[in-house]
């Protein structure tokens, strides 16, 4: 930045376009409230008064067409797995998935004798961030969401992707 240094006053910022887009895209991801089981209660608690998710820009949406992030909170069963896949396909690009809780990560406490439990939601949808815990505290979920924001900021949407 040699030629631009000390040329402008403090109210001018120079940065790459990727950084601006990353900042804009990451700071208000609307989440798809896909609460299945106990983790859904902690997701609701993190959206409520004490740990407010709205202050970091997350708003709950009930329809997959309006959401950016799908938080799979709870155990996914075989009966539900086909519907999870359908809902993921109904979301518009760019979309991200957070797997909340140990049931969605790997089957949780039901891994051994659960004939009807899907051992991890990443068998049906691609997952970006895993949040461990049974159930994870609201603070843990918020940290997972902030990690997702960091991940979105490092994406480069304007770069042509070579095959």
């Amino acid at each position: 930045m040699g030629v631009l240094e000390n040329r402008f006053k403090d109210n001018v910022i120079v940065a790459s376009l990727d950084k601006f887009l990353g900042w804009a895209r990451s700071t208000s991801p609307w989440y798809f409230q896909f609460g299945l089981a106990c983790c859904a209660i902690e997701m609701m608690a993190s959206a409520a008064s004490r740990h407010d998710l709205e202050r970091i820009g997350m708003m709950p949406r009930s329809s997959p067409r309006q959401a950016d992030v799908m938080i799979v909170a709870g155990t996914v069963t075989m009966k539900m797995a086909l519907r999870v896949k359908k809902l993921y396909e109904q979301m518009a690009d760019p979309k991200y998935v957070i797997s909340m809780g140990s049931c969605a990560t790997s089957g949780g406490p039901y891994w051994q004798h659960g004939y009807h439990v899907l051992k991890g939601v990443d068998l049906v949808v691609p997952v970006d961030v895993y949040v461990p815990g049974c159930p994870p505290r609201p603070e843990a979920l918020i940290e997972g969401l902030l990690k997702l924001q960091e991940k979105i900021q490092t994406e480069r949407p304007l770069t042509r992707k070579t095959a």
Partner: peptide, 22 residues
Amino acid sequence: WPLRKDYEGQEDYHGIVVPKIK
């Protein structure tokens, strides 16, 4: 019939593999 004592889990369900009960 899942809760019978001699229940053997099925191999897969619509393409999703059901692991054997250990």
